[in-house]
């Protein structure tokens, strides 16, 4: 779908945390997963920048493995804080999607 980037800005971190939570993964592999999920419009730079932020915010555990390009490749998994952040993201998402659904179906009225 086109022009999703503005809507995705606020939730991309949650999406990437969910991808990382499924198992050890490296940077560009995450971008490929996002593309495979249909998020084609996400700029490559966005994921690189996001991974730096996740690392800075201490939400991921990093394992370094040798690579054929020279520097070691970082593989990401979620740490405890990362899982907490992910749970918080889904709680917010559930709240938001429920309200949006209510708005769309009943104009925001709960008991119609």
């Amino acid at each position: 779908m086109d022009n999703l980037s503005e809507m995705l800005k606020g939730i991309l971190e949650g999406i990437v945390l969910e991808i990382i939570s499924r198992g050890e993964i490296y940077g560009y592999e995450i971008t490929k997963k996002l593309h495979a999920l249909g998020f084609q419009g996400i700029a490559e730079a966005t994921v690189y920048a996001l991974l730096l932020r996740l690392e800075k915010n201490k939400l991921v555990h990093i394992t370094k493995k040798p690579s054929d390009m020279g520097p070691p490749r970082k593989f990401y998994t979620l740490n405890e804080r990362g899982f907490e952040e992910l749970a918080a993201f889904w709680a917010k998402w559930d709240f938001l999607s429920e309200r949006i659904h209510l708005l769309r179906t009943n104009g925001g009225e709960k008991n119609v």
Binding site: G27, Y28, E44, Y48, G70, P71, P72
Partner: peptide, 16 residues
């Protein structure tokens, strides 16, 4: 580290 991460990320993207 950030520089090395970018080297690998860019290389992967270029290979793709």
């Amino acid at each position: 580290e950030a520089q090395n991460d970018m080297i690998l990320y860019m290389s992967d993207y270029m290979k793709d």
